[in-house]
Each structure stands twice: as structure tokens, then as C-alpha cells.
Amino acid sequence: MFDRLEDLLIRFEEIMSELNEPSVVNDQNRFRTLMKEQNDLAPIVEAYKEYKNCKQNIEDSLAMLEEESDEEMRELAKEELNESKDRMAQLEHQLKILLLPKDPNDEKNVIVEIRAGAGGDEAALFAAEIYRMYVRFAERNRWKTEMISVNENGIGGFKEVIFMITGQGAYSKLKYESGVHRVQRVPETESGGRIHTSTITVAIMPEAEEVDVELDMNDCKFDVFRASGNGGQCVNTTDSAVRLTHIPTGIVISCQDEKSQLKNKDKALKVLRSRLYELELAKKHDAEAEARRSQVGTGDRSEKIRTYNFPQGRVTDHRIKLTLHKLDSVLDGDLYEVIDSLIAADQAAKLSNLQEAS
């Protein structure tokens, strides 16, 4: 590990030197590439430099204890020695995490699909609440959200909603949200006061660029139709809505949120690319047993990952056995404790797998 850290430190210093060269500053593509590499390496290099300082402090403290006869100075040396040892252990763990293989999709934007499952109108109402939860979480992170497609049920619920979240690190935070989300509560339409259980599915897909997916337009069939629902005269009186069918996979995507047929077509293609990319990622994960075991849960949409229990005011994530009694706060977008716990569990699993492999 330390040989690799030394190599990264040398590389970081090389990059810093290159960034000061006029030829690099004038080459914007090269400059951006080096800046990204520098930003990626900076947290590792900073932690490693601090680790080396701690190591030096320990050596200095031990030397002082051997040479110093003054009891007060010896006590100070012992105190610094213990502090440096504790900090060094923390930094070693931190460096192991920083050196874990990065998910190449972590910095990507995401496309989120939420669909009502079992529970009829109650599931659709819950889907709308979960949509608002993610929008609020995006706002807390200063990310942007953009509606792609929505199918409402007429009473404020969503049978299906597809939207994009744009922001640095969106996928790294939200990738653990894919799966079945379950709600337990008394519906407003329930006169007997009985608790009902409803479900929705959430799919989090990294936004796929054209370079990520080879898409043959001959495999795509476009149908246009008149949009329905709210949207104003322009939307409802022109054939602006688009239905995209991907013939090889049978994937069908409908977009009618925009007034422009061209914009709806672009959005449909964006969703299709991300779905195809997700299929490729799933194949890759299935082929790599180690990679699959290192994930928090399987990410399968059929897996029940979380329960929102209204009578008890609690949220339980079943993958890591985490229960929080702050349902209102979570539904208002305060997902930090849940997501940080999932990330920590994922990192711990990956570290364990690396140790077993070595």
C-alpha cells in the first residue's frame, strides 16, 4: 500500500509542475484532464502527508523519551506520542478507503425512475412523496432536477415518474436507492383505521453519454401523439408527445413533458441510453461475483430495501439493519444519515473482501 502511495505522491507533484507550464495552460483539454487527476489525487496525498508527519512525530517523541530526563517534558512527549499513534491509525484506515477502486460512474448525473407497485392509489400517492423526498435531497445538495416524464393518477399521486438529477457526485450518493420501498400507514380513504402496506420501485441509473452506449438509430421506432393532461394549450393541441420503442430490447419510453417534439425525443433517447447502460452494468456485475458481493444489497428492483412506517414514525433500511425514528425529516429530504451509513457499510464490505483476497 505504501509503495503505491509514494507513487501517487510523485505523480501528484508531477501534475502540479505540469500545470504551471504555459504549453499546458494553453491546451484546455490537457489542462482539464490534469486538473481532474489532481482533484482525484488531492485527498489521498493530503492524508498520506499527514500520515508521514504522524510517523515522524512518533519517532521524535520516542527519541525524546530516551534522551529527556525532565519528567514534565517526558509527560508531554508521552502525550504527543499517544495522540500521534491514534491519529496514525485513523489515517491508515482512511487511506485504505481512499485507495479502494473508484466506481467510474460516481460523478455522473442520474436518471431516477419511480413506479407505483402494490397498493393502487395509495402506492401512487407514496410514489409522489418519494419523488418529493429526492427533489428535496437534491435541493439540499444544490443539485438541479428536471422532469422527463410523469403519469399521474388524478388525485395527486404518480403511477410513474422519471426525472433527472444533475450535480457533482449525484450517482455516488443515490446509487444505493434502487429497489423496493415499502410504506406502512393508514390511508386517508381507509375508514376502519387499518394499516395498509404498499410498495413502489425506485431505479437509479447513471446518465449515459453517447460514448457509453452504442445506439443504432435503426433499432429505434418513434411514434408521435397528442399529449394529455396538464400542460397548456400548446402541449395539448399538437403532436408533441413521443413514444420511443427500442426494438431489440422491447424497452418503451414515452415523453410528453416538453412542448417541443424534438425536446421530448431527446429526453426519450437520454432515458433509453441510461437504461441500456444500466443493463450493461448489470451484466458486468453478474459476471463478477466479487464485485456483486461488495455491494450493499444487490440493487435488484425486486429487493425490499426500506420500510417507511408512519404509525411508529420510523424508517428502516433492511440491508444494514438501520432504524431511524425521524420519518418526517427523511421524507423532507434529510437522507444524509441513511446514505452515509450505506456508504460506510459498502466500504467496510469492500475492505473485507480485499483483505480476504490478499
Score class of each variant (00 low, 15 high):
37 E>C: 03
44 I>V: 05
89 A>I: 11
31 F>C: 15
36 K>M: 12
34 L>K: 05
42 A>D: 09
78 K>D: 07
40 D>M: 09
21 E>G: 08
40 D>E: 14
58 I>E: 01
89 A>E: 15
68 E>L: 06
67 E>Y: 09
33 T>G: 09
56 Q>G: 07
74 R>N: 06
22 P>V: 10
77 A>N: 05
53 N>T: 12
65 L>K: 03
29 N>V: 13
69 S>E: 14
69 S>D: 13
25 V>H: 14
29 N>H: 11
87 R>P: 02
78 K>N: 08
77 A>G: 07
51 Y>H: 09
62 L>K: 15
33 T>D: 13
92 E>M: 00
26 N>A: 15
90 Q>C: 04
67 E>M: 14
31 F>R: 15
41 L>F: 06
86 D>V: 10
85 K>A: 12
63 A>M: 11
94 Q>C: 12
59 E>F: 03
47 A>P: 02
62 L>Q: 13
32 R>I: 10
81 L>V: 01
52 K>P: 01
37 E>R: 02
84 S>M: 08
67 E>R: 14
86 D>N: 13
43 P>T: 00
83 E>F: 06
49 K>N: 09
55 K>P: 01
94 Q>L: 14
65 L>T: 02
94 Q>G: 11
25 V>Q: 15
21 E>Y: 11
22 P>Y: 13
26 N>W: 13
30 R>Q: 11
59 E>M: 05
26 N>L: 15
59 E>A: 04
27 D>P: 10
25 V>K: 15
43 P>A: 03
34 L>G: 02
54 C>M: 10
63 A>T: 09
75 E>C: 12
81 L>Q: 05
61 S>I: 00
24 V>N: 07
79 E>T: 04
34 L>F: 03
61 S>H: 02
79 E>N: 10
52 K>V: 01
76 L>W: 13
62 L>T: 01
70 D>Q: 12
82 N>E: 09
88 M>H: 12
82 N>Y: 07
66 E>N: 05
22 P>A: 15
43 P>S: 04
77 A>T: 02
80 E>H: 09
30 R>G: 05
41 L>E: 03
59 E>L: 06
88 M>P: 07
